[in-house]
Simulated assay, not measured.
Amino acid sequence: MKIVVDAGKCQNHGQCAISAPTNFELTAGGELQYQESFDEENIADIEDAIDACPLQAIFLNQDARD
């Protein structure tokens, strides 16, 4: 599984970085950076980040291979 952010929807609100700081962060310039791969121990935070996104721009690609 991998994290996917729809760059066309994302407006860098940063709610994901608050919910899952291990996987998401805003740069000093306000741009979102994230890690596609993640440890299963972080899944709850990532799901919180998905739920917190006001534009529904984050999802998990369950077909992705590591």
Results as ranks from 00 to 15, higher is better:
19 S>W: 00
15 Q>F: 15
12 N>F: 15
39 D>R: 06
33 Q>H: 08
20 A>W: 00
6 D>A: 09
55 L>H: 05
25 E>D: 12
11 Q>F: 06
58 I>D: 04
58 I>R: 00
6 D>R: 01
65 R>I: 14
17 A>C: 08
32 L>R: 03
27 T>N: 08
39 D>E: 15
4 V>P: 07
66 D>L: 09
40 E>K: 11
5 V>R: 08
37 S>Y: 04
25 E>M: 14
8 G>T: 04
40 E>R: 14
6 D>H: 06
41 E>Y: 12
13 H>A: 10
28 A>L: 13
47 E>V: 11
17 A>G: 08
30 G>M: 04
57 A>Y: 00
8 G>S: 07
15 Q>L: 12
56 Q>C: 06
19 S>N: 03
65 R>G: 11
2 K>L: 12
63 D>P: 01
20 A>L: 07
49 A>V: 02
57 A>C: 05
18 I>F: 04
13 H>E: 13
9 K>G: 05
25 E>P: 02
23 N>E: 06
36 E>M: 07
26 L>I: 05
13 H>C: 15
42 N>F: 14
22 T>E: 14
11 Q>H: 10
33 Q>E: 12
17 A>R: 02
3 I>A: 00
32 L>G: 07
8 G>A: 09
42 N>W: 11
32 L>V: 07
60 L>V: 09
58 I>S: 04
49 A>C: 09
18 I>R: 06
5 V>Q: 04
24 F>S: 03
29 G>Q: 15
48 D>V: 02
46 I>G: 00
34 Y>F: 14
62 Q>R: 12
55 L>M: 12
41 E>I: 14
61 N>Q: 10
30 G>A: 04
10 C>W: 11
15 Q>S: 12
31 E>M: 05
59 F>C: 13
46 I>Q: 00
43 I>V: 14
49 A>L: 01
32 L>W: 04
21 P>D: 09
29 G>R: 13
42 N>V: 02
10 C>M: 11
37 S>Q: 15
50 I>Y: 03
26 L>G: 03
28 A>M: 11
18 I>E: 12
62 Q>N: 14
9 K>E: 09
31 E>Q: 10
25 E>Q: 15
13 H>D: 13
34 Y>V: 07
10 C>Q: 09
52 A>Y: 05
11 Q>D: 10
25 E>W: 10
28 A>D: 15
10 C>L: 10
59 F>I: 03
36 E>Y: 01
6 D>L: 02
36 E>A: 14
21 P>C: 06
10 C>N: 05
60 L>M: 08
53 C>Y: 01
51 D>C: 03
15 Q>I: 00
40 E>C: 08
45 D>F: 06
21 P>Q: 06
54 P>L: 02
43 I>M: 09
59 F>K: 12
42 N>K: 10
29 G>E: 15
22 T>H: 03
47 E>N: 15
66 D>C: 02
35 Q>E: 14
64 A>E: 12
55 L>S: 03
47 E>L: 08
3 I>H: 01
19 S>V: 00
65 R>K: 15
63 D>W: 01
62 Q>T: 12
26 L>P: 03
18 I>T: 11
35 Q>V: 08
51 D>H: 09
40 E>Q: 13
16 C>V: 08
51 D>G: 05
53 C>H: 00
26 L>R: 01
10 C>G: 10
1 M>A: 15
